[in-house]
Each structure stands twice: as C-alpha cells, then as structure tokens.
Design a protein around this nucleic acid. Structure first.
Length: 275
DNA sequence: AATTGTACCTGTCAGC
DNA sequence: TGCTGACAGGTACAAT
C-alpha cells in the first residue's frame, strides 16, 4: 500500500545511490509488469547503456529520469517493492525485473500480486500514461489550497472518503491516509462532498497537509508489505489513530473505533468525534 | 458527465 | 489437516 509518503521515502532512499549509475543489463523475469514499450526486446535495447540522472515523484508514481530524455515510470500499486542491493544477494520470490548497474549493485522490482507497472518512455511521451497525466495537484504543492479543495468538493454527491481517494482531485492519498486525514479533521467518511461547510473544508485541507507531512517525517507506514529502497521499515504505523484500530479506544474521545465498508473500501473511524 | 462495479493477482486467515 | 471464501487495496475500464 505505498501511498505518497511511502513513494517519497523510497525516492529519498534511492536517489543518492542511483544517481549517475549506468545500466549495464536487465533481467526480465516477468515481462507483464512492463507496459511500455510493447516488447521486452525493445525495453532492453533502450534501457541498456542509459544512465540515471535523477529521481522524481508525482502522486504515487516514481519517475526515474535517464540520459537521452528517457524516463522509467514505476507504480508499485499495492504490494510492489523496489530494492537496491548487491547482485550476490539471492533473488526474493516474486522478483520480476532486475536492473544491473556498473558497480555490481542491482535495482530489483518485487511484487507479490503483480499489479505494479513499469513504463519506459521518452520524456515527451509521458502524457501517454493516463493515470499520470490526469493527476490532481500534489497535497504539499502550492497549487493545492483551501479554495481549490472547496471548488472540487462543491456539488459532489460522492462521499468525502471516496473523493479523497480520487487521484484526479488530489494526488497521492490512499486508504490509510484517507482514513487518518478524516479522523484528524473530525469528519465522517460518508459525508457527501457537497455537505462540507467552509470551516470543515479548511480543517480538511489542514489535516491533509499535516498528516502527509508527518507520515513523510516518519518515513512512511509499514503495515504489511512496505519497505524503502534499502529494505527498511517506516515508523508511521506507530502514529496511526484509526487505520486498523477497530475495536480499540479513540485517542480523542475514548469511544470504540469502528470499521465499515465504505465506497468498497475498509474504513476506520470514530462515530462519536467524527461528524 | 458522473458514478458505480469489476477485473487484475496472490497470500493470509477465519471458519468449518 | 485441508478446503473454501473473504479480504487486503490502486487503478483502468466497462457498465449504468
């Protein structure tokens, strides 16, 4: 479940190590992960010999910029991992793609459920990835503010939780942080977007920024699968208020935290202090 | 146009 | 013990 804070932590943990590395070879153990170019042969032909210039992130997408205006776009979906390690280390089960570098190290893409994706494109083809092109603003970017959020919620019949998960509205929130943000803002996940008054929109905005910042500071939430590029776990699971806390007492009002299916997702909330 | 449902995968765990 | 079914969750796409 890598969401924005986890992908940002992965980017941070890999950036220094990958910068300047030359790709000497690639092992494509499961080609179905690679969505572009069409053939494995073409992927190999393009990527071998390129060097890594820098790593960037947009929403939950990791962008690895290469020489000659190429870019590797990686999405980990639910169980994807990227691990930087020496080539002598034995390959983990479900390792699908391995990049070999000029220093004997490798970048390995591991994904139990194989939902993750890799695109190799030239920079001017980036908008060909629909999910990336249609992303809403970064929650910590300057084009995300109360006015924007209010405008996006206006007239929406969908529940606020569903709206927070919509990557076209805001980039990077997933199920964990949507629940945590709504608890922080003391708003019920089922409230229609249009029902929020301006004071609630303001609270929601501040909670989104605060929760995401704190999670990045804690290097992400390691609930099940997530680790950073060095295999290290995050620490934010120690700071969660509602996610997977059903049956436990609310930190704010001591009522019992509930878990219900909302908009097809498990949702955790306090029905006493969230209104 | 906006919204809802389902497919994509595999591992884990509860219940029988 | 071993089987079955529910569940985990991000996104694309089909259906309404």
């Amino acid at each position: 479940m890598p969401e924005l804070p986890e992908v940002e932590t992965i980017r941070n943990s890999l950036a220094d190590r990958l910068q300047g590395r030359k790709i000497m070879g690639v092992q494509m153990l499961n080609c179905s992960i690679v969505k572009a170019p069409d053939s494995a042969l073409e992927f190999e032909k393009i990527i071998i010999g390129k060097s890594i210039e820098y790593l960037s992130r947009r929403g939950k997408y990791l962008l690895v910029y290469l020489t000659q205006n190429y870019v590797l776009v990686i999405h980990l979906r639910m169980t994807g991992r990227l691990i930087y390690t020496g080539k002598q280390k034995e390959l983990a089960k479900h390792t699908h793609i391995v990049l070999d570098f000029d220093n004997g190290y490798q970048l390995r893409f591991i994904d139990v459920r194989r939902f993750g994706t890799i695109h190799l494109l030239s920079v001017n083809e980036l908008d060909g990835i629909g999910g990336l092109a249609s992303l809403g603003p970064e929650p910590l970017g300057k084009d995300f503010d109360e006015r924007y959020l209010g405008k996006k919620l206006k007239g929406k019949t969908r529940g606020i939780k569903q709206l927070l998960l919509d990557q076209k509205i805001i980039a990077g929130l997933g199920n964990i942080y949507a629940d945590e943000v709504l608890f922080d803002a003391a708003i019920l996940p089922t409230r229609p977007g249009s029902s929020l008054n301006s004071e609630e929109v303001s609270r929601l905005y501040n909670s989104i920024v605060r929760v995401i910042k704190e999670a990045i500071d804690h290097r992400g939430t390691s609930f099940k699968d997530y680790v950073d590029g060095s295999g290290l776990q995050g620490k934010h699971q120690e700071h969660l208020m509602v996610y997977q806390k059903n049956g436990q007492l609310c930190m704010r009002c001591s009522s019992v935290i509930k878990k219900e299916r909302i908009a097809g997702r498990s949702s955790h909330f306090c029905s006493t202090c969230q209104k």
